[in-house]
Every structure is written in structure tokens, then in C-alpha cells.
Nucleic acid binder design. Structure first.
Length: 268
DNA sequence: AATCGAAACAACCGCTTTCCG
DNA sequence: CCGGAAAGCGGTTGTTTCGAT
């Protein structure tokens, strides 16, 4: 039967989004809301695949997205949630307000996997490895720039996790959009119940925000920059984790059914 | 200053799930 | 119930940036 491609690839833009495309997408969603991704590009005047639009919006343009370094508390929660849920990034992201599944997935793959290994923990099972890994982990994919003869060079280096490099976020534009789920930011005291989905999972209005390189987004003027400091407190994150744990501890049987029902409860 | 490899992350791909007529 | 379309999701890749030499 054959499944139709999600979009015709002929004549569509690919690769990094331009400020103009961002503006078009943002403006359209502001006016019409999310959804109908298939028809959105055409209606918004974008030469992009609907999927691409959705991804761009979900992972970058949404107003409730928190950018910047993962805090140690979030970091800890991600690890613990992963030990419960595995690679179910969307579920994990749903418990980390302002974070996207893609961001958490990337963070896991680039930071946490290495760190856990360096600490002697198997990132897949979260069990202790026989011996702490002291050698550089092989790169997941073959880098076409990387030849074997050159790799010896870096073997004596410290593990990345030991370097504690601080990653500075790329330029960020937070715009305030009148969208559902974005109009009830509260201070850090808010708690998230299991019945709240990711759409409602944003909180934390602060008076500080990350300021991006506006030049890169020339369309943004000062008044458009309205950023929320979406910083959950340690207690909040701890509560989230405890919630998950309690649900799992109802029954010792941590089988798939239980996990699935837990997942359902998160999604409800 | 130039070069190169590794790290980081945005974006893409394709499969699965959900929705709807 | 069935089939197709749309949306969601996780794995993978491409490109840019950064740091070491």
C-alpha cells in the first residue's frame, strides 16, 4: 500500500531555520494556535515540512521553553527518572517544566551517559559496572572527520565528564505569546500533580532571563523579549521524583504493565 | 594563526500510535 | 472494524563551535 511521505521534499527548505521562518511560524501559531501541522506550512507561507514546523515550535519557539544549563537538580531528576522510565524522553520531559524531550535526550546522550560511565554506572541499566570506565567512550557514530590515526591523540585527555565544561546556551528568544498553558506562570512554589501534562507544566515567573544574541534574530526588538525564569526548586523536583517512585512502589512488581500505567498517569 | 578532532545540539528520518471518517 | 491521515516519539545525522596542539 505504501505510506505517503509526510511531505513532498521537492522545493522545501531544510536545515537551520532562519529568523524570518521563525517569525512566520510564531506569528501563525499566535494567530491560529498549534495543530494541523500538515497544512500549517502552506497557510503560514513557509516552505517547510509540517513535521519540521512542529519540531521547530516544540523544541525551540514555544514560549514556555526554558533554555540554558540543566541545573544539578534537574540533572539528578533526569537520571532518576531515566532509571524508572528508560528512554521515554517525552515522559521525562513532561516532568521537567520548560524542557523538551529533544533537549533531555541530547543532554542524556552527550553528558549523562559519559558521566554515569565515568562513575562506574551502566547508563542503560543504572547498575554498577564491574569497574569504572576510565577510557574515553567511543563515539556513537563514525565521524567522517575522524580518522583512526588521529584518535590516539585524544586518549590521554580527561574524560569529558571530568572537565565540567559549562555549556552556554545558544541565543534565546523568549516571546510572550497568548497561548493556553502559558498564562498562569507562578512563582517557584507551584507543584505539579500527575494529572498535569506537559502543556501545563510550565511555571516560574522570575525577573531574570537569559538574553540571547538579538542580532541573530534581527526581528526581535526589546519589547518582544519577555523571558520567564523557569527554575523549579529542589523541593519541586524532589516531589516529582517521589511521586513517580511512590507510584512504582505500590507494587513490587515493576513490570511493563506497571510502567505503562505509570506512564499513562503522567500523560493523563 | 592555522589546523584538526571532539563536543554539542538542532534538525531530520522513519516507525509507532492515535484519531477519525 | 478498517484504512488512511496526522501527530508523536526516539534514534540518528549534519553542522557549528570550541579547545588543544
Amino acid at each position: 500500500m505504501g505510506r505517503a511521505p509526510c511531505c513532498s521534499k521537492v522545493g522545501l527548505h531544510r536545515g537551520p531555520w532562519t529568523p524570518r521562518e521563525d517569525a512566520l511560524l510564531t506569528k501563525y501559531i499566535q494567530a491560529h494556535g498549534e495543530g494541523h501541522w500538515r497544512s500549517l506550512p502552506k497557510n503560514a507561507g513557509l516552505l517547510r515540512c509540517g513535521k519540521s514546523c512542529r519540531l521547530r515550535w516544540m523544541n525551540y519557539l514555544r514560549p514556555d521553553i526554558k533554555r540554558g544549563n540543566i541545573t544539578p537538580d534537574e540533572d539528578d531528576l533526569i537520571i532518576r527518572m531515566h532509571s524508572l522510565l528508560g528512554n521515554r524522553w517525552s515522559l521525562i520531559a513532561g516532568r521537567l517544566p520548560g524542557r523538551t524531550d529533544n533537549e533531555i535526550k541530547n543532554y542524556w546522550n552527550t553528558h549523562l551517559v559519559k558521566r554515569l560511565r565515568s562513575q562506574g554506572t551502566d547508563p542503560g541499566t543504572h547498575k554498577k559496572l564491574p569497574e569504572p570506565v576510565t577510557r574515553e567512550v567511543k563515539r556513537r557514530r563514525s565521524n567522517k572527520n575522524t580518522s583512526n590515526k588521529k584518535q590516539n591523540k585524544s586518549k590521554a585527555k580527561l574524560l569529558p565528564a571530568e572537565k565540567h565544561k559549562v555549556h552556554l546556551p545558544k541565543p534565546v528568544r523568549f516571546t510572550s505569546l497568548p497561548l493556553p498553558g502559558n498564562d498562569s506562570f507562578e512563582s517557584n512554589t507551584i507543584t505539579i500533580s500527575p494529572s498535569q501534562g506537559r502543556d501545563q507544566g510550565c511555571f516560574g515567573t522570575g525577573d531574570s532571563f537569559l538574553v540571547g544574541d538579538n542580532d541573530r534574530y534581527g526581528l526581535v526588538n526589546g519589547s518582544d523579549l519577555e523571558c520567564q525564569s523557569l527554575v523549579p526548586t529542589t523541593n519541586t523536583l524532589e516531589k516529582l521524583y517521589e511521586e513517580c517512585l511512590q507510584l512504582l512502589e505500590i507494587d513490587d512488581c515493576q513490570d511493563q504493565v506497571l510502567l505503562d500505567s505509570f506512564a499513562d498517569s503522567l500523560l493523563a
